[in-house]
Each structure stands twice: as structure tokens, then as C-alpha cells.
Computed example of a mutant assay.
Amino acid sequence: MRSFADLPEYDDGVAVSTQISRAPMINLGVIGTGQFASYFIGGLRRGGYDGEVLLAPRNADVASTLACKHDCVVAASAQEVLAGADVILLSVRPEYAEAALANLSWEGRHTILSAMAGIPIDDLRALLPGVGGIHLIMPGSYIETAPGPIPLYPPAPELMPLLSCIGDVIALPNEGAFNAAMVSLCASTWIYDLADVLASELERHGLEPDAARALTLSNIAGPASFALGLPGRSLLDISAGIATEGTFTRTGLDHLKACCFDAPWREAIARLAESLRPGA
């Protein structure tokens, strides 16, 4: 494992955009070395990012694993991360953010990527006095193994060469839109629980567990990919074109609609959206 002392030095006066335009030369710093950092870094490496990644040492076990698995450098402290990187990923749990970020010396050259869900930009500016740009980001956990959308606010063209290693950047126009994208991310995880219900029922009706799992997940991923290839067509129109009158698909869909299957999903989304409103 390399040490922090092995890293090249960077002039504080070098603009972030200059380093980002030369993506392999970017030094990315990470404060909050946990689950999010693990799949974010994994996604970057999967997508070809070969720049330095400096990790704060607070979660020593995870940091050591990432250093070995993804060629990262564990710094001696969070302040040394700031000294060696201009782009800083913050993935501290929100309830610990104030304590974790206190007493650090931020500079105008630092660009922040915050994955601390629920902390708005105005609050981040109070926590991070003196930083340059602050951006909210929240891709899904699956980006470690597959490309996915990357909600970003505010838009930052200079960050595209870095973030596009992970997937397609969705630049959002305001913080409200970003919060809605966060709800979508949460809903993407609910799909696992829905898939488990479907697979369990298929097992009960005769499929082996492995086959039930594979069929269920493939029949979620396949339709999603198909619909993404038809961006101008409504999802309900696609469904109606398949679930035509008299088909088995239509029979099941009619039953689900009669039971108002969408109601708890809408309620869950409304609850999350309300909790993300400023001042909630």
C-alpha cells in the first residue's frame, strides 16, 4: 500500500476545472469512508478512472479494504486529504457531518461532491466555510458493477469527465428536482423487496429458487432497458401495447389495478418527498 507521502504535490492555484479536464490527473479525496464511498470508488474504477483516490482514515477497516481493492491511498487525517485533493467526496452520515467536518481548513480550490442525504446546499456552506463549488450527488449502489444515472445539482460541466466514468450524469436545475431524484433512488431499492415477493411466489408455484430469482430479476431489467430505448413513448402506452385484451398479462394487471396496487407506492413517495422539503 502506498503512503500519503508518495503522492505528487499540487499547486493550490491550479483551477479545479484544469485538473478535471485531464481526468487521469485528478486527485479525488474522500471523507466518509463507508458504504457509499465503496461503491462510488468501485464505479469510478470500473469506468476507467485511474487518478489518485485519497481516503480519510476514520473507518480504518473499510479504508484498508478500498486501498487494496481499488488502488487508493489512506491519508493520515482528513486534513491531509484536503491537502492532496481538490475534488472532495463527502459521504459522512448526515447526523455525524458537523462533528466530522469541524476544524478542517477548507480552501477556494476545493470542489465538494456531497452525498450526505438531506443536507441542503445552504447548510453545507455553513459547514464548509471557504470552499469553492458545492454539488449534491446521489447515484445508486449498483454503480459499482453497472452504469447508472448520476443526479447532480447544480450542473457542473467541468465535473463530467470524472462522473461520466460511473454513468450518465443527470444535471438538475434546482434543489427540489434533486430531492425528487433522491426519492427515485430510494424507490429503486424497494424493487429488491418487490422482486423477493415475486420470486417467492414463483417458488411456491413450482420454480427452483435460483430460477425464480433469475427470471424475476431479468424480467425487471429487460423491460426497463426496453423502455429506456423508447424515450418518447409513455410507460403506460408501452404497457398497454403488451397487456392487450384477453392476454394473461392483462388479466393479472387488471387485478392489480382493481386492488389499487399503486396507492402504497404513491404514499411512500409522498412521505419521502415531504421529509426532504427544507425545514422538514
Rank of each mutant, 00 (worst) to 15 (best):
R46M: 10
Y49E: 02
Y49V: 12
Y49T: 07
D50T: 14
G51V: 06
E52P: 10
E52K: 15
V53F: 00
L54G: 05
L54I: 11
A56E: 03
A56K: 01
P57M: 05
P57K: 02
P57W: 10
R58V: 03
N59W: 06
A60P: 09
A60H: 12
A60I: 06
V62S: 15
V62A: 15
V62N: 14
A63P: 07
A63L: 02
T65C: 15
K69A: 15
H70E: 14
H70K: 11
D71P: 06
D71Y: 06
C72S: 02
C72I: 02
C72T: 00
V73C: 03
A75V: 00
A76S: 14
S77M: 03
S77A: 02
S77Y: 02
S77N: 03
A78I: 01
Q79D: 03
E80A: 13
A83S: 15
A83C: 14
A83F: 13
A85N: 08
A85K: 09
A85Q: 08
A85H: 08
D86A: 14
V87T: 15
V87S: 11
I88A: 12
I88M: 09
L89N: 14
L89E: 11
L90V: 13
S91H: 07
V92M: 10
V92E: 05
P94I: 07
Y96D: 10
A97Y: 07
A97F: 06
E98G: 02
E98S: 12
E98R: 11
E98D: 05
E98F: 01
A99S: 09
A100I: 00
A100R: 01
L101S: 04
A102D: 05
A102Q: 03
N103K: 09
N103I: 01
N103V: 01
N103R: 10
S105N: 13
W106H: 13
H110V: 06
T111V: 14
I112K: 04
I112W: 12
L113Q: 03
S114D: 03
S114F: 11
G118A: 05
G118L: 01
G118K: 05
I119K: 02
I119C: 03
I119V: 14
I121P: 05
D122S: 15
D122Q: 13
D122A: 15
D123F: 08
L124C: 11
L124R: 03
L124E: 12
L124G: 04
L127W: 04
L127E: 03
G130S: 09
V131G: 03
V131T: 15
G132N: 00
G132H: 01
I134K: 12
H135Q: 11
L136I: 04
P139E: 04
P139T: 10
P139L: 11
S141H: 14
S141P: 11
I143W: 05
A146V: 10
G148N: 09
P149V: 02
I150D: 07
I150K: 06
P151A: 14
L152Q: 06
L152W: 02
L152F: 02
A156H: 03
A156I: 00
P157L: 09
E158R: 07
E158D: 13
L159H: 07
P161T: 05
L162N: 10
L162H: 04
L162A: 08
L163H: 02
S164M: 07
S164A: 15
